[in-house]
Amino acid sequence: SPEEIKAKALDLLNKKLHRANKFGQDQADIDSLQRQINRVEKFGVDLNSKLAEELGLV
């Protein structure tokens, strides 16, 4: 269901964000992850996106 997909995506992105902060990645990478999280919260996951591929939806 779209809600489950959204939850999985947010979980994955939050893990990536945590790792980025923990290991001191570029601020641009961290900002990009934050924008992705905001986009998923607002609009859900686009099944044509790279994120959908990472989640194994495509």
Rank of each mutant, 00 (worst) to 15 (best):
L57Q: 03
S32I: 12
H18V: 14
D11S: 05
I5L: 13
K42F: 06
S1K: 08
L51C: 04
I37W: 00
F43A: 05
D46I: 05
D29K: 14
R19V: 13
V58Y: 06
L55I: 07
L17M: 08
N38S: 14
L17D: 01
A7Y: 08
N48S: 12
R39S: 14
R39P: 01
K15C: 15
V58T: 13
Q25H: 13
L33W: 02
K6S: 04
R19K: 13
R35Y: 04
I5G: 03
D29N: 10
G24N: 09
V45G: 02
V45C: 03
G24M: 07
K8L: 13
L17C: 03
E53Y: 13
E3I: 07
L47R: 03
A20N: 03
Q36F: 05
Q36K: 07
S1L: 09
N14T: 12
D46C: 09
E3Y: 05
K42I: 12
N48E: 11
L10A: 01
S1C: 13
S32K: 13
N48V: 05
H18N: 12
A52S: 04
K50W: 12
V40K: 00
K22V: 14
Q27L: 10
Q36L: 15
G44Y: 01
A28W: 08
H18F: 06
L47Y: 08
A20T: 03
Q25C: 15
E53F: 14
I37H: 01
A28N: 10
V40R: 00
Q34Y: 06
L33H: 01
A52R: 03
V40I: 11
G44P: 02
Q34K: 14
V58W: 04
L51Y: 04
G44C: 02
Q34H: 11
A7V: 11
K8T: 06
L55R: 00
E4H: 11
L12I: 13
I37A: 02
R19F: 14
L55D: 01
F23H: 12
D11M: 05
L47C: 08
A9G: 05
E4I: 11
S49H: 03
S49L: 02
E3F: 06
G44M: 00
L12K: 04
A52W: 10
K42P: 01
